[in-house]
Design a protein around this nucleic acid. Structure first.
Lengths: 152, 152
DNA sequence: GTTATTGCAAACAATTTGCATATAA
DNA sequence: TTATATGCAAATTGTTTGCAATAAC
């Protein structure tokens, strides 16, 4: 199952995010609390804003406006990463400081799966260098079909 | 200037596209003709649908509906590549069969520039292989600032 | 009490669709 | 002639914004 990692990581992100928010003068409203909890649990791979709105609504919390506003806020604070898919929808996932990753999209199921790859990272840095670019950030999305179990 | 290549490439794409369209039972309407010509000239790097609509409108040709419909059609036929930017807008560029490339986005100017890099290509193939993925297609977008003239 | 948070509804913008008309083959 | 191409206007859909009411600190 994508999103299952070492125990404690979920809470680590939550603690980090809460600490960061506490230090900004912002206030812990009901929607923000619920959103943080939801993201801590399900924010390991891209979730769309609409999905989030729906899940919160199912619990009787939040509205379009507040969810979009909070997501924006979290992105600005560096708590979330925002990615726009081929369908033009914004999706979000927890940001882990200094820990960038790529996405594998399964052409059959549409499932998105994060992965990291040191060699690829090095190759990208090299390519940027060769083309006279000082790299700031990058997006890499691979589309294909799974033929073997993913490398852990 | 991005988009300047060997002489004749523009017409080569146009010929190829026209040939492909001719063999499909579709008809060469006025908007299609104008759109093909525009793309042959300016389609080397990502243009948004709105830009295209505007440019055609300035020449008194086309409408939202026909432009969007034609662009879709061209993508399906493999004449164009469709890319969705971080702003969620669809952008298009000429597809060259078997000739994939990446994009450099200048963080200062927002300019998008295509490039190719054999080593990067190999690295991507390797990463897909390592993660048990049979690669179908990929998107690579590098964000940063230009520090030297681009490698020709 | 002051100021940020929330919800509602309206506003927006890109894209899509229905349908009547024009036109290429 | 007959199916495709086109334009117009309306509909969709994701996202944003204005504003009054609410609640955190």
């Amino acid at each position: 199952m994508a999103g299952t990692r070492e125990p404690g990581e979920r809470d680590r992100w939550l603690d980090w995010a809460q600490g960061r928010l506490a230090r900004t003068g912002l206030r812990a409203g009901a929607v923000r609390v619920a959103l943080l909890e939801l993201l801590a649990r399900d924010g390991d791979c891209l979730i769309s804003a609409q999905q989030i709105v729906a899940r919160l609504a199912a619990r009787g919390v939040g509205s379009q406006a507040s969810v979009y506003r909070l997501l924006d806020q979290f992105v600005v604070l560096g708590l979330l990463r925002r990615v726009v898919g081929r369908d033009g929808l914004a999706r979000y996932e927890k940001a882990h400081p200094g820990h960038s990753h790529y996405h594998l999209v399964d052409a059959r199921t549409g499932a998105v799966e994060p992965f990291t790859d040191a060699r690829l990272e090095a190759a990208i840095a090299g390519a940027a260098e060769r083309h006279g670019f000082q790299l700031d950030r990058y997006d890499v999305v691979l589309h294909g079909v799974r033929v073997r179990g993913g490398a852990a």
